[in-house]
Write a protein that binds this DNA or RNA. Sequence first.
DNA 1: CTTGACTCCGTAGTATGGTACAGGCTGTAC
DNA 2: GTACAGCCTGTACCATACTACGGAGTCAAG
Lengths: 137, 137
Amino acid sequence: MTTLTIGKVAQRAGVGIETVRFYERRGLIDEPPRGPSGYRHYPESVVLRLLFVRRAKDLGFTLNEIKELLSLRLDPQTTCADVKQRAETKIADIEEKMRALRRMKQSLVQLTKSCNGSGPANDCPILESLDSLEQKP
Amino acid sequence: MTTLTIGKVAQRAGVGIETVRFYERRGLIDEPPRGPSGYRHYPESVVLRLLFVRRAKDLGFTLNEIKELLSLRLDPQTTCADVKQRAETKIADIEEKMRALRRMKQSLVQLTKSCNGSGPANDCPILESLDSLEQKP
DNA sequence: CTTGACTCCGTAGTATGGTACAGGCTGTAC
DNA sequence: GTACAGCCTGTACCATACTACGGAGTCAAG
């Protein structure tokens, strides 16, 4: 069975060496066996694991959440529904963030409309609004 | 002219005392005059400043960006158009974040659809997808 | 005059996700 | 055998926005 050094693993997974060690500390990848010199000897499967992490990260999961997802897979008690639940919770999180961003954007668009872009900054309607804007809950 | 202690300022602005000092260090509020004991004596205007900061923060500006907005106001060279420019850049930032979130959500929705919620977690289609998902740029 | 609340400063810790050393050992190629 | 890349550990650092804490001095009420 071929093993990989940390450099090869990092290269194949498209991450930095430090990141691989960091993920090990965070419990996202298993501690690999070591050679007599202390060098890490990784099975090839760790590359798949790192890609899993990256994809989950791209979907908005935090490293802690990813660790949870990984442990779900190992626990025979856990069902597919548990996984689905996590995905749905994450969707709700994302929707919440999108709503917050939408609100921000709407306010900013309003502000930019109020400003014709001429005159000195110190009586810009945008800055004036920030001085007195009503807080809408 | 009445002055306020840091505690009163924090209370009126709805932030913590430590936050007031933190904002001073970050250059978001002026260093106030001190009494003989070293206590800060704030003018009432600092409360307005703190509210400005909070509103700008609610609009998605970082503290550094807020500091910039504040200094724009003081510089007579700066025009209203500069302020508007910042707002428009921030709108673009927000739109970019929203697009990223939208992509995440779409992928997650796809994944949850692929999972009927039954069976053990270790062959959940969601987790399997994370093992082999194609990276779409 | 004492008590308790308030303030001072500086440093360190929180969470997030890494990145960057320093200083030393190892593995390999020539 | 010697150079050089690669790996080891541990710690410190980046940005972001705070929050907490220790230990000391101060202010105001009773």
